[in-house]
């Protein structure tokens, strides 16, 4: 008989597969804060810039996701760029223009923009 634990393990494996099929293993994962506080600080604009860039410029090695609020209110909107094996880069107070530059410099050329990171 399948127990609830068996079921959940199966469900988790399926969930992980679905996430992987969306490109989770891409070289770079980008997380944009989308809680009420982040949205109030302007994160919807930032999300839009990333979304359209990924679509229009064919950034196939980028996985984009929204996230809740990590708690750094005075530095919102926040964006994280996570790469396997590297310390995740965390940007604060990201604007449309900054998002554009993060795409050109960090996502395309692999150069993190140090001045904008949260310490």
């Amino acid at each position: 008989m399948t127990t609830p634990l068996d079921t959940i393990k199966k469900k988790r494996a399926e969930a992980i597969n679905r996430i992987l099929s969306k490109g989770y293993l891409s070289t770079k994962r980008v997380y944009v804060g989308m809680a009420t506080c982040e949205i109030a600080a302007g994160s919807k604009d930032v999300m839009e810039v990333f979304e359209s860039a990924i679509k229009k410029e064919g950034l196939t090695d980028v996985y984009l996701s929204q996230k809740g609020c990590a708690g750094r209110c005075n530095l919102e909107p926040t964006v994280e760029v996570v790469e396997e094996g590297k310390i995740p880069i965390k940007y604060g107070k990201v604007t449309r223009e900054m998002a554009r530059q993060i795409i050109d410099q960090h996502l395309k050329k692999g150069e993190a923009i140090k001045e904008w990171t949260i310490k």
């Binding site: 127990t3 609830p4 959940i8 469900k11 969930a15 996701s65 929204q66 996230k67 990590a70």
Partner: peptide, 28 residues
């Protein structure tokens, strides 16, 4: 999980051992 998973995607929660506690309770 706040700030590291997509809150609107149940797959994200499942991938971080979501609902495993519930399954454990119901099983054991």
């Amino acid at each position: 999980n706040c700030g590291i998973i997509d809150p609107e995607n149940i797959d994200d929660y499942l991938s971080v051992r979501g609902y495993e506690a519930l399954a454990k309770v119901l099983t054991e």
